[in-house]
Nucleic acid binder design. Structure first.
Lengths: 341, 341
DNA sequence: CTGAAAGCGCTTACAG
DNA sequence: CTGAAAGCGCTTACAG
């Protein structure tokens, strides 16, 4: 492995000049730059990032802390962040922080803080005040994805508004018996996502003058199977079968479609179904949904970070950025039918 | 940010001793160690990984190169690798190398080789001889997951055997008109996966004395939708409808189940379906399959790497390690029924 | 068991 | 525009 000295020697200049020519910091005559560059490529030289980081204090590396990897939403955020980071010349160091407080403390202490990263993207992670302070004290920008974090720039989506929009879509089609499959309390820690979506659903109903009926509410674990089971409960109710179901995620909504089919109900003739996400599979199932764009979320997080890392091009925004969402109507929702009753 | 000097001062020892006490390399008296450790924690000291790496030449960081992030198989491999790496005290730097040769060269030149990582896990990536040589020359262990790489330790699965097993399962249930939905050529680059699975299917048929019929073969893109469409073709064939379908992935197999339902065929009464993977959704759909264990694959890759990184605990294995697989019979396969013909 | 000092491979004021 | 030299924060022979 050739070092900077060898390049300097071959090019007939000092190591300082090599550093300047290759990094673009500081002036170097065009001719010299040429010589340096060709010497470097001849030797196959590539700077040692450790040495460079130690000297400059910058690592060109961003830590991404994410609770799960193999779920559509999270892996999409990760994908978006990765490609944006790569485009900006940054590496991505991955910290999968599913578990308990211990694992988490360990990651913070032993990894994040080792000056290994210039900044942190925290996905769906509620940092404690101490953790935030510590990172900020070190002058490491943080951006949170998924919910507001005190004192930290965040990207978040208006879950109440999304849920209201989905429900209003059903209302506008004439439905009045609209059930909701929400998330378990287990998912409450993610910035009260289940509650927010439920609140959006209820507020839409109330605005339409329709009383909220606890019989039309079920919870599940955001999976297809969970949605399927919850939907069976709903559809099986002999005295109050919903004509429409709003599920808090597309996977649960797909489970709902499958449950309807298994009960001999047709979608959307007998029951309309809408979800939230615009999951990979939703188009295939013809599912109407409110799209959130996780890849975009990852990309936006990187953009915000770059602004903070390179204050020159700083566009100074607000502390919290709202994420876009969009109603996508496919074939799982339709006007309430006469076939019913 | 306190440095090692401050810890040394507070503990009343030299920086050398601090380093030794904290890292565990070299002898330090118990009393001194105590003092150092409490001084360090009092100051909130944590070593700078850059400085440490520069001095030792080791980064405690492993690069994982992976073609896609948001697909079940790959994200599961990643998850397995991540947790195993974390457990071993290593960081994971992620390189998502979907694209073209350019992006790829760029990653190699500008990232991997910057001495940022101690080792590389290459998932489903055919490295060129040059790339392999270069990494090996730098003394960076590599382990490939997904297929044999010349001169590199690899983990691979016997796709021919898996496909044969799946097909034999159908044969043993009395099926003789068995269709296969294989992968597109587009996926051939992944170590000829589609071809290998097709070969396994055909060899099982031949061993059973059943001629291979091109009318019973379709290709798709490994997605549910692709499987659905291919299955419709198969089931729609008026003169040769299969009684069983072996799909080269679970997502395609699930698509097949849905296609059957939409045509009014019952699974498994009218048609048996088997896939490969044991995807997250397979249990929910009652899909019989041959499981491969991607998380385990990620974990094993890390183990092999650790053996090479820490030759002390070297268990010196062969160059290529075969991955386990297992037939899982659920409710999508059954004895060929009398209802047919 | 412990310390003084060299060295890891860069970058960047400071001079010129 | 370019070079000599200090410094980034550790680790580790080398002595003792």
């Amino acid at each position: 492995m050739p070092g900077i000295n060898e390049v300097a020697e071959l090019a007939g200049v000092s190591t300082a000049t090599v550093s300047r020519a290759l990094s673009g910091n500081g002036h170097v005559s065009a001719a010299t730059r040429e010589r340096v560059i060709s010497a470097a490529s001849e030797l196959g030289y590539v700077v040692s990032s450790n040495a460079s980081s130690l000297a400059t204090g910058r690592t060109k590396n961003v830590g991404v802390v994410i609770p799960v990897l193999n779920q559509w939403f999270y892996s999409s955020v990760l994908q978006g962040a990765e490609s944006a980071l790569l485009a900006n010349g940054y590496d991505l160091t991955l910290y999968n922080l599913g578990g308990g407080a211990d694992e988490r403390r360990s990651v913070f202490e032993h990894f994040l803080l080792r000056k290994r990263v210039d900044a942190v993207i925290a996905v769906s992670l509620e940092l404690t005040a101490g953790e935030t302070t510590r990172l900020l004290d070190m002058n490491k920008p943080i951006v949170g994805v998924g919910g507001p974090l005190p004192g930290v720039r965040t990207l978040s989506i208006d879950d109440v508004a999304i849920a209201r929009l989905a429900t209003e879509h059903l209302l506008s089609l004439g439905h009045t018996t609209i059930a909701h499959i929400g998330g378990n309390k287990e998912y409450e820690r993610d910035f009260h996502l289940p509650t927010n979506r439920r609140v959006g659903y209820e507020s839409a109903l109330e605005a339409a003058g329709i009383p909220v009926d606890p019989e039309l509410f079920q919870t599940a674990d955001f999976t297809m199977r969970g949605g399927y089971q919850a939907a069976k409960q709903l559809f099986g109710n002999p005295r109050k079968r919903p004509t429409a179901v709003f599920a808090a995620s597309d996977e649960m909504a797909i489970g709902t479609i499958l449950a309807a089919r298994d009960l001999g109900l047709e979608v959307p003739e007998d029951v309309s179904v809408i979800g939230i996400d615009d999951h990979d599979l939703s188009d295939f199932f013809g599912l109407s949904t409110v799209a959130q764009f996780p890849e975009l979320q990852g990309r936006l997080a990187v953009e915000i970070l770059m602004d903070q890392l390179h204050p020159s091009r700083r566009t100074q925004g607000t502390l919290n950025t709202s994420l876009p969402y969009e109603l996508i109507v496919r074939s799982s929702t339709a006007r309430v039918s006469n076939r019913r009753r």
